[in-house]
């Protein structure tokens, strides 16, 4: 009985302890990276590497989602006799939600897992201890550039996700379902403002920074065993995906207002 009562308190306490540890780690690592000579260059290198590794998975994940969105939206809109609204609706949903959300999820799965696994393997091989032993800042040298790299890479991949997803929606709507090409192309930007695009990009920077910190922290504090490396990668991916979706909801509420649509962008 006592254990049952203790469980919620212990879970809440360990959640906030883990959150505090990630926030503190993020601050130490990023400040350390920015203070290191060549820290920004290392971060840019990490961003390029992440972008190169994640580009194909982003295309393969987000393209079909755009196509599914177009297919189901057309079915729904036909019920109201408003098929003409397909392109603006699909493109607005892609830019506001689908692209930033799923680009971040793919970065978490591909880039985040590899960040966690790399750092965990370095911990296991005592490479991080060696850096600390030489008086160097292992957080700033190793983790910081990866966190900043994820923050830089996420908006680039979001732009790629927007293009791919719109192409997927176009392919399904025009080539498969027979929506007129000119109608799709002429109306696709009607539901969108430049602010939507900027907010979408800003959201992915926050997602990238957050998931970079979660994954780097998971790898940095992993167990020193072979299975610990896999466990770190696994835990990092799951936590990052949950973070992206919870953060997306919180940001949506902040952007669109608590009463939904009170600050509608259009």
């Amino acid at each position: 009985m006592l254990a049952l009562l203790r469980w919620p308190g212990a879970t809440t306490f360990s959640f906030f302890a883990a959150l505090g540890r990630v926030v503190a780690f993020f601050a130490q690592a990023t400040v350390g990276a920015l203070r290191e000579r060549g820290g920004l260059a290392a971060a840019s290198q990490q961003a390029l590497s992440l972008t190169a590794r994640c580009a194909l998975p982003v295309v393969l994940v987000v393209g079909p989602i755009g196509a599914m969105l177009a297919m189901q939206s057309l079915t729904l809109l036909r019920g109201f006799g408003t098929e003409r609204q397909l392109a603006p609706l699909a493109v607005a949903v892609i830019v506001r939600e689908i692209a930033p959300g799923f680009a971040a999820v793919v970065v978490a799965m591909q880039g985040g897992a590899s960040i966690a696994a790399e750092l965990a393997a370095m911990r296991l091989a005592e490479e991080l201890d060696a850096l600390d032993g030489m008086g160097l800042d292992s957080r700033g040298l190793v983790a910081g550039p990866r966190i900043l790299g994820a923050a830089f890479a996420a908006p680039i991949l979001n732009a790629l996700a927007i293009v791919t997803s719109v192409a997927g929606a176009y392919g399904m709507a025009v080539l498969v379902l027979g929506v007129p090409r000119t109608l799709f192309l002429e109306t696709m930007l009607n539901g969108l403002t430049p602010l939507d695009v900027w907010l979408s990009e800003a959201k992915t920077v926050i997602f990238g920074m957050g998931l970079g910190a979660i994954c780097a922290s998971a790898g940095f504090h992993s167990e020193r065993t072979t299975t610990g490396v896999g466990r770190a990668a696994n835990g990092a991916v799951v936590t990052s995906v949950v973070f992206v979706l919870v953060c997306n909801y919180v940001l949506n509420t902040a952007i669109f207002g608590l009463s939904g649509g009170a600050v509608a962008l259009s």
Binding site: M109, Q110, E118, A121, A125, V229, A233, N234
Partner: peptide, 11 residues
């Protein structure tokens, strides 16, 4: 092989 292989497989 090794720990890196385990992380890469999970990834």
């Amino acid at each position: 092989g090794g720990a890196r292989g385990v992380g890469a497989a999970a990834n």
